[in-house]
């Protein structure tokens, strides 16, 4: 019964398009790499089209790009503050890349890059390393560690608070990665499971037709929800990146 058509997990299968191995590591060019490239090309193409002939009164593409730019810029400025604008490029890049990957994943037959934990964990670790580097550079090792004990903590519980803060800092890349990947994985497999009820119901006939009709409506609803989730998860990733950066950059925000 379960085939490539009805298996909900088939869509997440990695395929080696150009097998390549280096020093025991599998560095093949996979379908994941292909769709990552498509996402980058899409974002770069949109930005290029929008800024190619920049005018005072923006055209269609320029409006979209300006809206997008302003949205992320506002987010960065409102969370990190004015001094945070030097992190705008990384936040914008992350947001645009994740949004493009999520949205491409909504396309039939396309591969959802962000449904693999290796990709999202890499993105999460990137944020983690940036936050760590900025924090260490701004405050120095001791000052950075001191941030794990909020001011006003009683001495008696300070060690516990320190441990808890340290752990919640260390698991950040994990939470970032799992939140994004689990949302994409769950949503897409739910869609596929619902969709696979349609041919099964049609084949069964009788009441099966009703079930098929119901699943089609369900798929439509889940698809709409998935578009929201695709945007929301990219947004949450970007917002959390900003929040984490604001903790090491901001001086008087707490």
């Amino acid at each position: 019964m379960i085939s490539a058509d009805t298996d909900p997990m088939y869509q997440f299968k990695l395929e080696r398009l150009l097998p390549f191995e280096l020093g025991g590591f599998d560095l093949s060019f996979t379908n994941s790499s292909l769709w990552m490239g498509v996402a980058v090309a899409l974002v770069a193409g949109l930005l290029w089209l929008g800024t190619r002939e920049a005018q005072l009164v923006p055209g269609r593409f320029q409006s979209v790009v300006e809206l997008f730019y302003g949205f992320v810029r506002n987010m960065v400025e409102s969370i990190i503050g004015h001094e945070g604008l030097k992190f705008f490029p990384i936040v914008f890049t992350l947001f645009a890349f994740i949004l493009a990957c999520n949205m491409i994943g909504m396309w039939p037959y396309a591969f959802t890059v962000t449904s693999h934990v290796s990709v999202t964990l890499a993105l999460g670790l990137l944020v983690f390393v940036i936050v760590l580097t900025v924090g260490l550079a701004k405050k120095g090792p001791l000052g950075f560690l001191a941030k794990f004990i909020p001011s006003g903590t009683p001495v008696a519980i300070a060690p516990f608070v320190f441990v808890l803060e340290l752990i919640s800092f260390l698991i950040r890349p994990g939470t970032l990665a799992v939140r994004l990947f689990a949302n994409m994985l769950a949503g897409h497999s739910l869609m596929k499971v619902l969709a696979s009820f349609v041919p099964l119901g049609l084949a069964a006939g009788g009441v099966g037709f009703l079930a098929a009709l119901g699943s089609i409506l369900g798929v439509a609803a889940v698809t709409a929800l998935e578009f929201l989730v695709a945007f929301l998860q990219a947004y949450v990733f970007a917002i959390l990146t900003c929040v984490y950066l604001s903790e090491v950059v901001g001086e008087g925000h707490h």
Binding site: I167, I171, T175, V178
Partner: peptide, 11 residues
């Protein structure tokens, strides 16, 4: 909530 669950699972 997701932080609570994720923190427990990850640690």
């Amino acid at each position: 909530i997701s932080n609570l669950v994720l923190a427990t699972v990850l640690v």
